[in-house]
Nucleic acid binder design. Sequence first.
DNA 1: CTAATTTACTAAACACTGTTCATAAAATTT
DNA 2: AAATTTTATGAACAGTGTTTAGTAAATTAG
Lengths: 215, 215
Amino acid sequence: MGVAERKERHKEDLKKDILTAAKQLFTEKGFEATSIRAIAEKIEYSPATIYLYYKDKNEIVHALHQDGFNLLMQHFSKIDFSQSAFARLIALGRAYMQFAFEHPDVYTLIFSMKEPMQHVTDCEKEWHEGDRAFSLLYKTVEECKQEGYFKDMESVGMSFMIWSAMHGLCTLRTSGHLEHMALSCAEVTSLKMDVNTLLDHNFETFIKLLEKLKN
Amino acid sequence: MGVAERKERHKEDLKKDILTAAKQLFTEKGFEATSIRAIAEKIEYSPATIYLYYKDKNEIVHALHQDGFNLLMQHFSKIDFSQSAFARLIALGRAYMQFAFEHPDVYTLIFSMKEPMQHVTDCEKEWHEGDRAFSLLYKTVEECKQEGYFKDMESVGMSFMIWSAMHGLCTLRTSGHLEHMALSCAEVTSLKMDVNTLLDHNFETFIKLLEKLKN
DNA sequence: CTAATTTACTAAACACTGTTCATAAAATTT
DNA sequence: AAATTTTATGAACAGTGTTTAGTAAATTAG
């Protein structure tokens, strides 16, 4: 029936409205400062209404979680896939870092927060977005091997270590730890560094490290 | 005057009581679930009293932050310093991981949360604890160089990448991301893995990686 | 040994948070 | 037009960090 469909569409619309409002507030004011009431006010509905479309806040967070992953994949899709596997690996790392830098809150949401991940396991859902991203890394690592890199190294472990290294760098950056180290490092190494140059420097060191694993 | 001293001691005592109560609740129920009211109840004082000894919750968190770092350093002090620099580096990594595994909430507090770090920069305080830990890593890296490792690699960048790799691994573990990947990885690689074996596997891969950087 | 003053403490309130539920309004079906 | 289903909400619950005004206790002064 056409009417039922239209109603269903309306319902879906409101569901998306809630999500876009949440995303907006979320990116504007950060996750911590985004309340159900604020989302409700933005879409001009009562707070209680939101609970007719989402079971709880975690379900909203989970939806944003998926959204954030698509954004990451979007960043990945920009890279030139005609390059060598190793060059692609570096490009992946750079895109990953840029994503974390441009959308720190989204990054924290999808990679650091426990809640969205907990929601996935609670609902016994699969995490296709994450799997896809990881398998992209994994395949690139495997292809790097054919180019002579990472000999004798197990690919899964290697992929995880690359991911970990990048993830660690990004989280140390967003949490403010790197910023602080940049200052105190200046004393030790007598090199004045701002956060971003330190970040770049560390990434370049990582590339150099990976390059040394050839032949 | 003796009386004033005794009073001062009493005051300091209560300040420490608040902290130990906070730490206890914190390690029992996690950070999120620890409220000022709960701390107050544990020490049998009014919530308002706590604000006579600590400006706000951030100040308590900051105190716990320092405490957590001492705990980390305690873990570090257990390692055998008569070994080679490289063996010490590995031992440092292992101790770091064990610390993160045994005290996940403390780890999150000192390395992942923005608030305590923000408090440091807000009060224009130094972060000696962090500096000490990092310089321990830095010096070990430098000594590794004398053993033939990390040739041509810049030490600061190298130290940061090692830290990042370990930090990334630990946070992916505590956030539940690694747990999820362990399941989906089983499909790809047809290797059934539980989280801890995957964690160990990844760390072993990292060691292998570092070993390849000799000569 | 009272009286004044300083110090230590707390009850109550404020402005929030996520969430639930009975009730009301709107839309749809009979 | 009446009955029914769907949709939306006001009000409340239990919780959070924090502030303030006022009380009880300890200390000092007379």
